[in-house]
Amino acid sequence: MLTKNRTVFTELGTEAIEKGLADPQLSAFYESMMSSSGLVSEKLREHMPYLSLCSDKLEGIGPPPIFYVGRRSSQRHLFGEDWAMQQGQELRTPDPDLEEASAAAYRAALEERPYYGYARTAIHMEDKVVDIAFERLIIALRPSPKSDRRFCAYFGVIQDLQQL
């Protein structure tokens, strides 16, 4: 049982992945991307269903807007199909507090190195509040060697989820 009203966002560092402490699928994604030096290759294909992708645009207090939500990704599982396919405005997670708390990890991934961390928090959605614990890996990738664009790939693994 999670401790209510206790929010934690902490970086564990990719060393924890290398020591075998992370989720196996997340670890496979990390190793695959490291072996291709952060460049998109065919190796990314098998991981696409589990990823959310967002831009490299860091403005204000939130993380970059999302443009792709994998069919089996943790964000689609958490926020639902309608959220994942919504149109009309930039796609962002529905809780402003979550947006603000998660932004630093994207900044670290874009400016320094891949971010691997653990989080536990309450998320406020339109019709419910959930307590969630998850690990997350964020890696900045380049779609091709010549591209001046980068994007963030987010691999989240929900460890515990309880509706309040």
Binding site: S55, K57, P65, I66, F67, Y68, Q87
Partner: peptide
């Protein structure tokens, strides 16, 4: 096309 519309918003707005 929905994904591409989001892509454009994510990078250009």
């Amino acid at each position: 096309c929905c994904i591409i519309a989001l892509l454009l918003k994510a990078f250009t707005k």
